[in-house]
Design a protein around this nucleic acid. Structure first.
Lengths: 162, 162
DNA sequence: CGTTTAGTTCGTAATATTCCGAACCAAACC
DNA sequence: GGTTTGGTTCGGAATATTACGAACTAAACG
């Protein structure tokens, strides 16, 4: 195994697990990260990842549909050169924020529910719900979100100057 | 479907997806979050989630092994009362930080590899790797980590006063 | 117009995940 | 000491995921 292959596998496993992708989809992303802006062709992927054309095709299609990758072409060259979407970092931060917002909403919903139930219970019933966990969680999500938002804004600024 | 059932399902789906757990494992966690500190028994879980004893058992076992849940008992009562591990928030932040650190290391490794390759290339070869993506990613991870670390420290302080 | 290149489609084999039922066990109850 | 309670084990069915191969197509080449 070459150093390149080792990195593709290691990063592949990481992506597979983190992004919940099929092993080969993850290896494709991994390869694109390692290949960088010069892009990589369909055929090279088939060859480098040792998978069938149909498998590579399927995963390239779903990765494009999921707005994770794209491609460019060269004049007088029928091949497609696949690359990560250019604003990948910003996108993945947005994704992160979206998930955290979803979590916030669920916890708010649960707190509402628990408050409602508490109200129907006698003053110091031992059935009373404790809301501290949810309050802590919400506070965490808010702080983490605002921190990531700040980082994201800086990045967006940086990309404007291009 | 009662309001409680609706929340269990909704939170369950969320946990299943976020934590990569089997549907029923996620529903168990979901139920424990909703039930809170008073805990819930094996039998109640079987009944409330409409799953078999063996399934509930298997998932309770793996969730305990994964340090996600625990239980307490009551004098003169053979039943186990399952609850989330008490310092759940702190643990899940640690988990988050651990993953981010892993990502940092991989990106550092890739940067090393790319620098090495760049050195073997002619001055302005178009094959040269661009390291900006990795630099941005590392910077993001560092900022996000330090922000989460701060929040975590505050929480640890808070829990000491118990 | 036949051939090569660069994909594309689809049915299915291989594998992995998830859950279940039936049988089992140990402690407590009667 | 038989029965109930509360759980535990294990083999396998049902389902979902992942990758493959063979056949196909459309554009370009010669």
């Amino acid at each position: 195994m070459t150093k390149r292959e080792k990195i593709i596998e290691k990063l592949g496993v990481h992506i597979e697990c983190k992004e919940q992708l099929a092993p080969l989809a993850a290896r494709i992303l991994s390869t694109l990260i390692l290949t960088g802006k010069k892009g990589i062709t369909f055929e090279s992927l088939v060859c480098e990842l040792g998978a069938s054309k149909s498998t590579i095709f399927t995963h390239l299609t779903t990765l494009q549909a999921g707005n994770r990758i794209t491609y460019f072409t060269k004049p007088g060259d029928r091949k497609k050169y696949f690359i990560l979407i250019p604003n990948m970092m910003i996108q993945s931060m947005s994704e992160m924020l979206r998930k955290w917002n979803n979590e916030k909403e669920i916890h708010l919903e649960i707190m509402d529910y628990k408050k409602e139930v508490n109200d129907t219970l006698g003053e110091d019933s031992n059935e009373m719900f404790d809301l501290e966990f949810h309050r802590d969680y919400l506070s965490f999500l808010e702080q983490a979100s605002s921190s990531v938002e700040k980082i994201q804004k800086k990045l967006i600024e940086k990309f404007k100057n291009d």
